Computed example of a mutant assay.
Amino acid sequence: MKPTPFIAVEGPIGVGKTTLTQLISSQFHYHTLHEIVDENPFLSKFYENIEEWSFQTEMFFLCNRYKQLEDIQQLLQKQKPVVADYHILKNLIFARRTLTANQYDKYERIYHILLESLPMPNMMIYLKASVPTLLNRIELRGREMEQNIEPSYLEQLSIDYDHHMNAFQKKYPSIPIIELNSEEADFVRNPAALAEIIEKISYSMNNR
Rank of each mutant, 00 (worst) to 15 (best):
S130Q: 11
E108L: 10
R109T: 15
E48D: 13
L99N: 09
I7L: 05
A192N: 11
M205C: 04
Y86P: 04
V188P: 02
M145Y: 13
Q73R: 06
N166H: 15
I175P: 01
N64T: 13
L140C: 04
G142Y: 00
M165W: 01
R137F: 11
I138W: 00
R97V: 05
V83N: 09
P173F: 01
E108S: 13
Q103S: 13
T19P: 01
L92R: 15
Y172M: 07
M1Y: 08
E150Y: 00
P121E: 08
I50F: 00
E52C: 03
T19F: 00
Q22G: 14
Y203I: 10
T19I: 12
V15Y: 00
I93P: 02
S182N: 07
V15N: 01
H87P: 00
K78I: 06
A8D: 09
S130T: 15
P121Y: 03
T21S: 14
G16T: 11
I159A: 12
T19C: 09
M205N: 03
M145D: 07
H31M: 08
F46R: 05
Q169W: 04
I88M: 00
E184R: 05
K200W: 06
E10W: 00
E155R: 02
C63W: 07
P173G: 09
L127H: 08
R143E: 05
N122D: 10
T18A: 10
P41H: 07
S26W: 02
T32A: 14
V188W: 02
E52G: 02
R137L: 12
I201V: 12
L20E: 08
V188T: 12
Q56V: 13
E70Y: 11
I113C: 07
I177N: 04
M123D: 06
Y172R: 09
K128P: 07
F42T: 11
L154D: 04
K80V: 15
Q74L: 14
K67M: 11
L62T: 08
Q79L: 06
A101R: 15
D105Y: 01
N64S: 10
R137P: 02
R141Y: 05
E10H: 04
H34D: 07
L20T: 06
N91Q: 14
F55D: 15
I201S: 01
N166E: 15
E35N: 06
N166I: 11
I36K: 15
P5S: 15
P132I: 10
T4Y: 00
Y107E: 01
K171I: 13
T100V: 12
N49F: 10
T4E: 05
Q77F: 03
L134V: 01
T4F: 00
L135F: 01
N190R: 14
R65V: 03
S117G: 05
F94Q: 09
L43P: 00
E196Q: 12
R97S: 13
E150T: 11
D160V: 10
L33K: 09
